[in-house]
Each structure stands twice: as structure tokens, then as C-alpha cells.
Design a protein around this nucleic acid. Structure first.
Lengths: 248, 248
DNA sequence: CGCACACTTGAGTAATGTCAAAGAGTGTGG
DNA sequence: CCACACTCTTTGACATTACTCAAGTGTGCG
């Protein structure tokens, strides 16, 4: 872990005797939307923040529930999904450190969220947050930016779900995960899969078995090396990229 | 067509001798994001607007091109899509009167757009538009709202592409289209399909043939009545809704 | 009238899903 | 420390859905 970039929150809290907030020691701040706010503005945001912890496989958000909180993932991994009445599930995204959720268009959440690993989440009451949103244009602009990114990512994923083969889908996931994290200290790109095969399948619109078989093929053909079922070395990232792009 | 709601744009333009803009006679204004702006603010927006026409099957936006314009569909239908190098195409959305496009996260468009029918589009230079965005918080808030809706719609569509059967997909499309427009004056809900079977297929992640077969089955089982290949009467909207929801 | 284009329908195939069993990894309690 | 039990993963055999290829059937437009 690198030291967090110097910021004034801890110092100010100490010097003015401000109520300490979970934000004071937030490791995800640098990656989070909150980072656009500085000094006093940031403290106003921090003042309404509340931290919550979840163990793996706990429900964080239930589709349809009143959207009373905005949330920011501080650590751990979360899956966002929608489900059909008979249980078929589509994971629409995995969230990690610094990602936010819970900004639905209406009064209720339109998706569900469940912890994949142990998770720390920073919550903001919606009302208070929206007040700050009006007060701090930079915050609103930052959120707009994030939401725009989310749409582009959604388009990408629709292309995957609607038009890619199983092989291309799995390759896409690996490449995508490799882009996020430099796992381990190795120079070969590598991904740590916090989710199960079934969750990968629900993300890729496949079955667990197809995901497993596809990974096995990648292993047999030397594209990846499984150090363990959830720790994969991407031996030929270039090839995986081409497959993911639908070029092979 | 009902008369557009009374607004001041035409009157003001006349009384103050303001440069006439395409917005003066825009039939889509009531449905568009621009409607949040009133009076002088609206005129500032109108001042940077430029109208463009397209015939059916023309390229409006090319993925990767510099995103110099924001656009608002004034009339007609547009498809938004992404494609793989070998031509496989995923339509991520159909736009109609009052829908906007062209707000990518970065400098270039991340999707392509093509006219399905004859189309009128209102374009705003990006720079100027962003200046207005900063000036008029209500505009930014409205756009945020639209973008949030778009994300929820994208989640819906991911569920469809990843987990629904062909039958459920086609039913979903019909229900969705029926929700948008009250086509004709009939009391039975009815949809007018401006797009081809192939375009429906590219939207639903299927092939043309599967779409056609599925519609035929719906016809044979009395769920719909085809007044022509592109004019469908939804005889049992309730049943279609249940199928679309994955309940049958 | 006939050509072109989109749509429909049919027959066979391929990719992925389903069901089932065996294997691997992990943690717990004896 | 080992053995058992649990869960997740892998692999196999088979079923099914949707795709591919191909031949017809409208329908509108020149």
C-alpha cells in the first residue's frame, strides 16, 4: 500500500476539533468522486458520511427499496445485478474501491447489490447529498462524468452480451480485470477473481460450466496460467485482447 | 397531433426581432431536455442550435469521431449502435422525438448513430453547450436525470441480452414500443415498426430469422395481429407483458 | 409488369445449456 | 495433525435453443 496523498482533512479535523468522520482515514478517497471537493467543502460532505461494513454475500441494496442512500465502496468488491422472477440473474457490474452506486432515476433502487468479498461502504443520506449537489457544482459535474462513463461501459457490455461468443466474453472479462489492477508484483499481468464462476457467468450471460470450460481451453492453449482457481496469470494478454475485440 | 403547449419563444422572437432559430417551431420541445429552460435562458440555447436533416439509412454519428456536437432528435427515428470489426452489430438503443445523444465521457463519440427513417436533428456545438451547462444548473440537472434514466434502461437491456429467451426478448421490444407511442386512434395498443427485422435482431441480440419466427408464433397464438409487416396490433398486451417479464 | 428488397419458412448444424458425477481446495473438529 | 464435510470447480454426456444456409413469398416502386 502506498501512502495516501497528502490532504488537509486529518490536519483540519485535529486543529479545529471537528467531529472525526470515516473519511479521515479513507483509503479510497483518491479514487472516489469525493476527491473533487477540497477543504471546507469536503468536510461538509464528510459530515454526512457514515461507514458500514458487510461480510461476503450480504445484501447491500435490494431492487425496489426506497433509495435513501448513496454509497461509495471504500474497500472490497460488490456486484450489482438485476433478476427475473424465476431467479435468472444478470450482473450488470462489479464495483471496487472508489466506485459509487445508488443514484437511481426515481425514488427506488432499480438494481440490487451484494457484497462479493468483505466490504466497507461509505453511505450518504440522499436528501443531504442532493443538497450538497446543488451547492457544489464541481461535485455534480464529477458525478455526471462518472455516470457518462457508466453509460459507455454499459454499451460495451451490451455489445458483449448481444454479440460476442463465449470465448470472446471470457477474454473480455479477463482483459477488463487486468486493466483495473496490477495484481501481485509480477510483471506478467495477472487477475485475482474475487467472484465465483457462477458470478462470472451471470456477468457474461453464460453458465458456470461454459465459463469453466472456456477458461480450461485458455489454459490448455497457453493463454493463461492458473496459479489457483481464482488467481490467473495472463500469459498472452495481446492475444486475449484480440479475442476480446472479436478479431480472431 | 395535439397543439404544442403555449410557450413564449415565438412571441418573443417576433416582438424583439431576435434571430429566428429552428427551436421556434420545434414540435419536440415539450419532450426535450431543452424544455427546462424558460425565456431568456431558452433563447440562449436556441441561439446555438442548428437543425440538420437526414434521409433514411444515413450515418449521423461515427464511433470514434470527435464529439463536436450534442444532438437532439426532433423527428424521426435513429438507431444507436456499436459494432465489432467483423460487422456484428449491437443496437444499444432507438431514439425518437425529443431524445438526445452525443454526450460521451471523453473527446470522441463512443457509439455510432444512423437514421432509421427520415430524421430532423437539432445540433449544439459542444463547447458552447458546455458553457451553457455551467451557466444553467437546471439544464445540467435535467441532463443528469436523463442520463440516469439511460443507465436504468441499459440495465434492463443487459438483463434482456444476457438472460432472456428469444420469445421474451421480442415480447419485451413490443411492450416497450407500445409504452412509447399510442399509435393510430385505435383502442387496442399498437406499434409501428420503423426498423427492419434485421435491426430489431441487432437490438435484441438475435438473428433476423429468429425475430421473424417469433413474431409468427405470436401471430399464430393470437397475441398479435399483423396489419402489415411493420404495423402490429397487440391483441393481448397483458400476456405479452408477462412473457416480457419472464413470468411465463 | 417485373425487379428488388424485405420478410417468412424450412432443414440441418453448431454453440451453449442442462444434468450428473468426480475432483480440488478449505476449514473444522476429533 | 489428520479426516471429514462442505463448497466450488472441472469434466463428461446429452439436450436444446438459436443460428446458418437456402428456398420461397409477398409488396412496393420504377
Amino acid at each position: 500500500m502506498a501512502d495516501p496523498p497528502a490532504n488537509d482533512s486529518i490536519g483540519l479535523a485535529a486543529s479545529f476539533g471537528r467531529t472525526p468522520s470515516p473519511c479521515d482515514h479513507c483509503g479510497a478517497r483518491a479514487r472516489s468522486f469525493c476527491d473533487v471537493l477540497k477543504g471546507q467543502e469536503f468536510h461538509q460532505l464528510a459530515a454526512i458520511a457514515l461507514s458500514r461494513s458487510f461480510e461476503p454475500r450480504q445484501t447491500i441494496i435490494q431492487e425496489g427499496d426506497p433509495a435513501d442512500f448513496l454509497m461509495n465502496v471504500t474497500s472490497g468488491a460488490v456486484k450489482i445485478f438485476r433478476a427475473l422472477p424465476d431467479g435468472r440473474t444478470q450482473v450488470v457490474g462489479f464495483l471496487g474501491e472508489g466506485d459509487f452506486m445508488g443514484m437511481p432515476p426515481g425514488e427506488g433502487y432499480t438494481v440490487s447489490a451484494e457484497s462479493v468479498t468483505a466490504v466497507e461502504i461509505c453511505t450518504f443520506p440522499r436528501r443531504s447529498f442532493e443538497r450538497l449537489l446543488k451547492e457544489f457544482p464541481s461535485l455534480e459535474r464529477r458525478l455526471f462524468e462518472l455516470v457518462s462513463n457508466e453509460i459507455a461501459a454499459a454499451h460495451d457490455h451490451m455489445l458483449l452480451l448481444g454479440r460476442k461468443t463465449a470465448r470472446e466474453r471470457v477474454a473480455s472479462l479477463l482483459v477488463q480485470m487486468a486493466a483495473k489492477e496490477h495484481c501481485g508484483n509480477v510483471h506478467k499481468p495477472c487477475v485475482k477473481l474475487a467472484m465465483t464462476r457462477a458470478e462470472m457467468a451471470d456477468y457474461l450471460g453464460l453458465t458456470m460450466e461454459t465459463v469453466s470450460r472456456t477458461l480450461s481451453t485458455f489454459r490448455r492453449t497457453g493463454l493463461i496460467l492458473a496459479q489457483s482457481p481464482d488467481q490467473l496469470l495472463l500469459l498472452r494478454l495481446d492475444a486475449l485482447r484480440r479475442i476480446a475485440a472479436g478479431a480472431d
